[in-house]
């Protein structure tokens, strides 16, 4: 147990344990992103609804997620819901709920922006050259919307992935917690904490950076 530094990482299954912890947060992020895309589409359409009540509802929802730190939302769902409604949710479920609540609103706002960004004359010109309603959507509107939406949606996804690190604070055994367990186990090694936290830092970067790069490239390509 006297190993110093980085050797600890490759001792036994330590590295696999860290990756397993990372997967816990990634799983929460992936499920939340998937649900956010579906709900975000509904949310975006609802924002464009002419009904005042729908607009107010969306506005309030969006302002809540913009103003409240995600950690506060996690606390409300994880600790508060048990008291308020008697729902005893585990950390992972609470995380998925909060990140979907947040992601759906943000995604909805992006979808709304993409939908309204296309000038009316695009539809009119398409109709003038004799395209049917379906063809207008298929060949004119949807391609332009996607080009605007996709880079932003991918950026939102990296933000969700980064933010899932917070589930550590509601007792989910994820990569930081696993790291701390390993550090505790090898407490005799003076610089174990340095290397473990450094590797976790690096792991997050290796997950998020390629996704950010993809968003950047798409943005450049379609600008």
């Amino acid at each position: 147990m006297q190993d110093s530094g980085i050797a600890i990482l490759f001792k036994g299954i330590n590295f696999q344990r860290l990756l397993g912890g990372l997967w816990v947060t990634l799983r929460i992020a992936l499920i939340s992103i998937g649900l956010s895309c579906v709900l975000g589409l509904l949310f975006g359409l609802l924002m464009l609804s002419r009904r005042k009540i729908a607009q107010v509802f969306c506005r309030v929802w969006l302002e809540i997620v913009r103003f409240m730190p995600q950690l506060v939302l996690l606390y409300i769902v994880y600790f508060g819901f048990a008291r308020m409604f008697g729902w005893d949710l585990d950390g992972e479920t609470s995380g998925i709920l909060v990140f979907t609540f947040w992601g759906a609103a943000e995604m909805g706002d992006l979808i709304r922006g993409a939908l309204t960004s296309i000038p009316l004359h695009q539809t009119e010109s398409a109709a003038a050259i004799g395209l049917t309603q379906w063809q207008i959507y298929r060949h004119v509107l949807i391609p332009q919307m996607l080009r605007r939406l996709l880079p932003q949606a991918i950026n939102l996804s990296t933000r969700i992935i980064k933010t899932t690190a917070l589930v550590k604070m509601i007792n989910v055994i994820e990569v930081l917690k696993v790291g701390q367990q390993i550090i505790g186990q090898f407490y005799r090694s003076p610089d174990a904490a340095f290397w473990i936290y450094f590797v976790i830092f690096l792991l997050y970067f290796l997950v998020c950076w390629p996704i950010s790069m993809l968003a950047k490239r798409l943005e450049k390509k379609w600008a």
Binding site: T158, K162, T163, A165, L166, K168, L176, P190, D191, A192, A193, F194, W195, I196, Y197, F198, I200, F201, Y204, F205, C208, W209, S212
Partner: peptide, 22 residues
């Protein structure tokens, strides 16, 4: 790129508990 693609929580743990060890 590094700052934008890592969570603040991890950055704080690294600063507060990782760096003192070196």
């Amino acid at each position: 790129e590094v700052a934008r693609n890592t969570p603040l929580l991890v950055q704080l743990f690294f600063l507060y508990q990782g760096l003192p060890r070196v």
